[in-house]
Design a protein around this nucleic acid. Structure first.
Length: 644
RNA sequence: GCCACUUUAGCUCAGCUGGUAGAGCAACUGAUUUGUAAUCAGUAGGUCGUUGGUUCGAUUCCGACAAGUGGCUCCA
């Protein structure tokens, strides 16, 4: 007999060789129907795998993250089995579970999958899951596995085997599909009731663009059709708040073939948002002791050789233009220009920290396939600043920048983000990162220290640093789930020396400052793209391009409506009159769809009383007020940048 | 840049297997003068992304290019 410990502290005895499924059945049939896998001493196990010693056990269901990922991992294998039966000779790479669903990478030779193939594959998967095949789990030696896949000529599985040792290799046999290495869990096949293969794409083998491109099929499955339906509805909802769709509906920006890919044109409505954001940034930076500068959009090649950008960054820059034998580049970043401003006049320790700020316009030649609405563009306006400070001042300065992030996030109600400490990869020193191993260690420790001392939750990620130093990135997700860096706070220990930036320290000796690059509001492009989705187009009053729309009940009240509109404009409120010859219901509907925060409905009653009927977007009629009262409450809502 | 797909009126989309195009909304005109999410009628609007080819004939079939979309790689 063996002892099984349960999460609630209970302990029960079972015969040796009992499976998690047997245990579930012994508790209740209902539970057994829900069990997808088991966590055995913290490791995810197939529910049918025999347990031969005392363990602590947690039965995993759809409600557990590990249960879901086990489910999706097995769906990936179910799909592989369907693919193999339809396209014999296919070779598989890996098929992991995702946050939502799964994919499988495969080499289909010359075969190209079509949308129709996906439907056929779904059908096949449904058939297979209904067959309720029994899968036999068998541990085999590395030699056996290698010779098996050598015979098959499957270089992908052989590659996977390289990193595994005897005792780690498991085969699962079912029908014709053989396949997989250790982590597979097949006991959940029978739960695959709602299957949707979502897309076909290419993916480089091992994620390296020098390697062959494999075919990747994405899919998602659910234990019931109801959940699949709900998921599809959710996807539709997400599409409605896609910034590309909202940007068009609300006349925020447009793209034009003649201007070029990734070069957005900001329409008047979008420009209002830009100006409001800049106003906020300038106020905030002014209060935090920043000084504003302005720099040209181009610079000579020599400056980017000095900065060290060219060897690391040339591929992401527009090709240079040559004038009188000198190459000029469009700037992809503002830092070198700012460094030149630092260098323009001699500096003493008394001048530090020096904080230079600019909403700089940069151009980056992003690969065509990477462009994405406003989120990834080739012309960007950066909320940039560079802080030159001593090592002693670093903690305080870096922390002040972090505090500024948090202040902004509060204003915008941004709470779904992850702070990411982005570190270098020692293997890429001299290639992707400046070759200063000691300085990397030192500055990475400095940054981590700030995060820890300020109790900021964060994750650490290798190989995401800037070439000149580690950074803290704020990661967010677009409506359709793509991840982006919204804001960034970076340390630079390299460029100061490259530009020979110096200040005279208290011992009257030259010293090189540390540099902080920071962009709490990221770029206008990405930030506004993000805000469109974050607010679903319903901007708070201070940001709304049209703040108030005056809606006369009929033409008879148009003069009164125009008087009100003028009073609002006099009070610096962005107001318009709907002077169309339409019924009030139509005017309200159209204004609601434009997400204008306030609608002032005026008819005979309001005109006689000198009042307005206030309607708040999304909330309906909220009563009447005098014009003066409305103006003063709207003005304070704007001034305080209230969320609502 | 790579893999796959898409491109028809300002917007959203029809247009079966090749015989030069249609709807709704928006726009414009007129009627209506309206009380909290779509009043009615009429008018105008398209070398069917661009460009080669196949064909008596191409929006429709094939190729190239461009832009976009879903991914990969990459990034604020």
């Amino acid at each position: 007999m063996i002892k099984i410990h349960f999460p609630d502290g209970a302990e029960r005895e079972y015969a040796e060789g009992v499976s998690a499924m047997d245990i579930a059945k012994s508790i209740s049939e209902g539970l057994a129907r829900k069990v997808l896998a088991a966590s055995v001493n913290g490791v995810v196990w197939d529910a049918s795998r025999p347990i031969n010693s005392d363990v602590s056990l947690k039965l995993l269901t759809w409600d557990d993250t590990d249960g879901k990922s086990t489910f999706w991992h097995s769906s990936a294998h179910l799909m592989a089995e369907a693919v193999e039966s339809m396209f014999p000779g296919v070779k598989f790479w890996v098929g992991p579970a995702l946050d939502k669903g799964f994919y499988y990478d495969m080499d289909l030779g010359d075969k190209k999958l079509t949308e129709d193939d996906l439907l056929q594959l779904e059908k096949k998967m449904n058939e297979l899951s209904k067959q309720q095949n029994v899968y036999v789990r068998k541990e085999i030696s590395k030699n056996e596995a290698v010779s098996y896949f050598q015979e098959k000529g499957d270089q992908y599985k052989l590659d996977l085997l390289q990193n595994l040792a005897d005792g780690e290799i498991t085969f699962l046999h079912s029908g014709k599909f053989h396949g997989s290495l250790p982590w597979s869990t097949y006991s959940t096949y029978r739960f695959n009731k709602a299957i949707k293969l979502t897309s076909i794409s290419g993916a480089y083998w091992k994620g390296d663009e020098k390697n062959k491109m494999l075919t990747r099929v994405y899919g998602v499955t659910f234990p019931s059709n109801k959940e699949l339906e709900e998921y599809l509805v959710m996807l539709e909802e997400a599409k409605k708040r896609d910034h590309r769709k909202l940007g068009k509906e609300l006349s925020i920006f447009t793209m034009d073939d003649d201007v070029g890919p990734g070069l957005p044109l900001w329409l008047p409505n979008g420009t209002i948002i830009i100006e409001e954001l800049e106003k906020l940034a300038k106020e905030t930076e002014q209060a935090a002791g920043y000084k504003r500068v302005v720099t040209p959009h181009i610079a000579k090649e020599s400056m980017y050789l000095t900065s060290g950008h060219l060897p690391y960054y040339a591929d992401s820059m527009y090709p240079p233009m040559e004038l009188d034998g000198t190459k000029y580049y469009l700037k992809a970043m503002n830092c070198p220009h700012h460094h030149k401003i630092f260098a323009a006049e001699p500096k003493s320790y008394k001048d530090l920290p020096l904080r230079l700020a600019e909403y700089g316009t940069c151009y980056r030649y992003e690969q065509s396939g990477e462009l994405f609405g406003l989120m990834r563009v080739r012309c960007l306006h950066m909320n940039d600043a560079h802080i030159y400070c001593t090592k002693e001042q670093f903690y305080q300065e870096f922390k002040a920048v972090n505090d500024m992030y948090l202040k902004y996030f509060k204003i915008f109600g941004i709470d779904k983000y992850v702070m990411r400490l982005s570190l270098h990869d020692p293997a890429k020193l001299g290639k992707k990162y400046v070759d200063e191993p000691e300085l990397w260690k030192e500055t990475e420790a400095l940054v981590r220290d700030v995060l820890i001392r300020t109790n900021t939750p964060f994750v650490e990620v290798q190989d995401e640093a800037a070439f000149y130093g580690p950074k803290i990135d704020v990661q967010i997700w677009s409506a359709i789930g793509r991840e982006f860096t919204l804001a960034t706070n970076q340390v630079d220990f390299a460029q100061g020396r490259r530009f020979k930036l110096e200040y005279t320290n208290q011992e009257n000796k030259p010293d090189t400052p540390l540099i902080i690059h920071r962009a709490p509001l990221g770029t206008h492009e990405r930030f506004i793209g993000f805000l469109l989705e974050h607010y679903a187009g319903k901007f708070p009053l201070w940001l709304a391009p049209i703040q108030v729309k005056v809606l006369p009940i009929s033409d008879k009240f148009l003069p009164y409506a125009q008087t009100i509109s003028q009073e609002l404009k006099n009070a610096d409120i962005r107001a318009e009159v709907d002077d169309r010859n339409e019924k009030i219901g139509k005017k309200i509907r159209d204004t609601e769809l434009l997400r204008v925060p306030y609608m002032l409905v005026v008819g005979e009653k309001e005109m006689n009383e000198g009042k307005v009927a206030i309607r708040r977007q999304g909330k309906g009629d909220t009563g009447t007020a005098t014009i003066a009262d409305f103006v003063s409450s709207a003005k304070s809502e704007i001034k305080e940048r209230r969320a609502e």
